[in-house]
Nucleic acid binder design. Structure first.
Lengths: 117, 117
DNA sequence: TCCACCTGTAATTCAAATCTGACAGGTGTC
DNA sequence: GACACCTGTCAGATTTGAATTACAGGTGGA
């Protein structure tokens, strides 16, 4: 995952740092599932599950795909993407510095990430 | 950190998964500081900082100690504890299983962590 | 005594995240 | 047509977390 801004790092940590989402990850670890089935297994309402999945997806932890089942029903399958979150003091410091670099760049009008002078 | 319950894992992730707390960690990475000084550097109100520090301390990321300065003033110093958060699918699955084990144990009245039959 | 520091907490407001219930729409089967 | 599935979204209640203000108390020095 190379260098993360603190925004990306936070999205990742906040996404996985929640009881329900941890359970979602645990369930999807055993294989891809469509939303309704997942909702049933976890005992969550479907709208709520959508919200959590959206968060996980934005953080890059899961991926969803709408598929047509054999009998023509639309089904949204979600699968777990391989991830390996590693956070140390350096990770944090690097992310914070990346922010400063971006902010400085934005002030000068060159807001390209990772670019440093 | 050996085996974590999901509660401990969540405490850790939620603690570090917040913008202000990330900044706190970043500041403490450069050395121990007392609360008022830290508040000044980050531009946070002291009560708010207390709340964040409490969270970080409960998660085991920082440690606070009340000390007497040379001129006799009470000062609460906080320092960053070494940490190395590593989260993969296995971490999550292990944590969830640990929960089940604890829950099962609690039902039988033997709520000791890590004990498995 | 007054001022400049410090710690600690209670009360309260405010914002954001979480969660529920209800709706609209689609397909296939009995 | 009625039913059992599925997706998707919105409005609103509720809960949690974040943040401010205000207070009480302590020390040392001018």
């Amino acid at each position: 995952m190379s260098v993360l801004t603190s925004e990306e790092l936070l999205a990742l940590l906040a996404a996985v740092g929640h009881a329900q989402r941890l359970r979602i990850v645990g369930e999807l670890a055993q294989g891809r599932l469509h939303v309704s089935e997942l909702a049933r297994r976890l005992g969550l309402s479907r709208p709520l599950l959508y919200m959590h999945l959206e968060r996980l997806e934005k953080a890059g932890l899961v991926a969803g795909a709408l598929e047509l089942s054999a009998d023509g029903k639309a089904m949204k399958f979600f699968e777990l993407l391989p991830f390996d979150i590693h956070v140390t003091v350096d990770t944090v410091l690097t992310a914070l510095r990346e922010d400063q670099a971006l902010a400085a760049g934005a002030e000068r009008g060159t807001a390209e990430k990772g670019k440093r002078t």
